[in-house]
Design a protein around this nucleic acid. Structure first.
Lengths: 106, 106
DNA sequence: TCTTTAATTTCTATTTATGTTAATTAACGT
DNA sequence: ACGTTAATTAACATAAATAGAAATTAAAGA
């Protein structure tokens, strides 16, 4: 469900984790603590939420758990927005223009 | 902040409200109750959250409050995803392909 | 084997979010 | 003015999310 994806990204810490992974690529859980003043258990649980929402995935390397963003997750969000943009952008732009025009007239 | 936008869309009821507005255009608060079995006060507060997140806007028409999606909000989400897609999609695709190939080899 | 490192799960406390009922505000129609 | 409709705000109860400390699991390295 789309809203689970949004809910997972709706927390400031989780959003920061995802952005860090997007910018720096695959990282172990320990390195993700740098996103804020937060304990390892808290990070771990946030990672679980993101994983269950399908936004990140885990790879085990020795005693480290490596995390990375699932490309499909970002793509899905883009497609959701794009779906409405494609079909509605033009009419929305026309509506916006009309409202602006209306404002100018008044 | 981006994560406030996601947080607002992370609730099932609010997500349904936004989808209804995207599909049907501007609607009064009363009509948005149809998204589920929920009381008018609950809907009203969800609308407030969406409004404060900049996702919807309100227009007053007589005794009715008309709500609609702000085009820029959808665009912003699309652009966030697109920003990462544009810069990372190719390398991510390459990574995916490499992992698949690795899987085939094993 | 023993100690250290990495990360998670358990436990518990606290905060935040959500929902309902009741009361309030505001405008419409008679 | 009065009753009705539309929607919100207030008050309160409950559920869900988040956090840290402590305990647990698992592998690494001496």
């Amino acid at each position: 469900m789309m809203h689970d994806t949004f809910a997972a990204l709706g927390d400031a810490t989780r959003f920061a984790i995802v952005e860090k992974l997007l910018n720096e690529g695959e990282l172990p859980a320990g390195n993700l603590q740098e996103v804020g003043t937060i304990s390892p258990p808290a990070i771990s649980r946030h990672l679980k939420v993101l994983r269950e929402a399908g936004i990140i995935e885990q790879r085990i390397d020795k005693q480290r758990r490596m995390y990375s963003v699932r490309p499909q997750a970002v793509r899905t969000i883009g497609e959701w927005a794009m779906n409405y943009q494609e079909f509605w952008q033009k009419s929305l732009d026309r509506l916006e223009a009309a409202l602006l025009q209306e404002g100018n007239d008044a």
